[in-house]
Amino acid sequence: MAYENPSREEIKRLLENTHTIAVVGLSDKPDRVSYMVAEAMQAKGYRIIPVNPNADQILGEKSYASLKDIPEKVDIVNVFRRSEHTPPVAEEAAAIGAGAIWLQLGIANDETAAIAERGGLQVVMDRCIKVEDAILLPQGKSKS
Rank of each mutant, 00 (worst) to 15 (best):
D31Q: 13
G120T: 10
V79G: 08
G60C: 00
L121A: 01
I107K: 04
S83L: 07
M36T: 12
E92L: 02
E9Y: 05
L59M: 10
A108V: 14
A108G: 07
L14C: 03
P6M: 05
A116Q: 03
N78D: 15
E4G: 02
E39M: 04
V89L: 09
A93K: 00
V24Q: 06
R32V: 07
R8A: 15
D28F: 11
N5W: 13
N54G: 15
R81D: 08
E39G: 01
L137S: 07
P71L: 03
S34V: 07
R118D: 10
D75W: 06
S63W: 07
R13F: 04
I49Q: 04
S63C: 13
I58P: 01
I58T: 05
D69Q: 14
G140P: 10
A43F: 01
G25I: 03
K12H: 08
A114Y: 03
G97I: 08
M36A: 12
D126M: 14
A65Y: 08
R32D: 07
K62V: 08
S7G: 07
A134G: 14
E16C: 01
D110T: 09
A134M: 10
I70C: 01
K44H: 04
R82P: 03
I115R: 07
L103P: 00
A38M: 10
V33F: 09
D110G: 05
A2T: 13
D28Y: 12
L67N: 15
G60Q: 09
E111T: 11
L105D: 05
I135R: 14
E111D: 09
S66M: 13
G99H: 03
A90M: 09
A55N: 05
S144C: 01
A108D: 14
P87R: 00
G97A: 06
V23I: 04
D31I: 08
A93T: 02
E61C: 04
A40T: 12
K141Q: 13
S7A: 11
A38C: 10
I96L: 11
K29Y: 04
K73I: 00
P138L: 12
A94E: 00
A40K: 14
T86G: 13
G60L: 06
A38Y: 11
G140A: 07
L136F: 11
N17R: 09
G106L: 07
I129Y: 00
A2E: 14
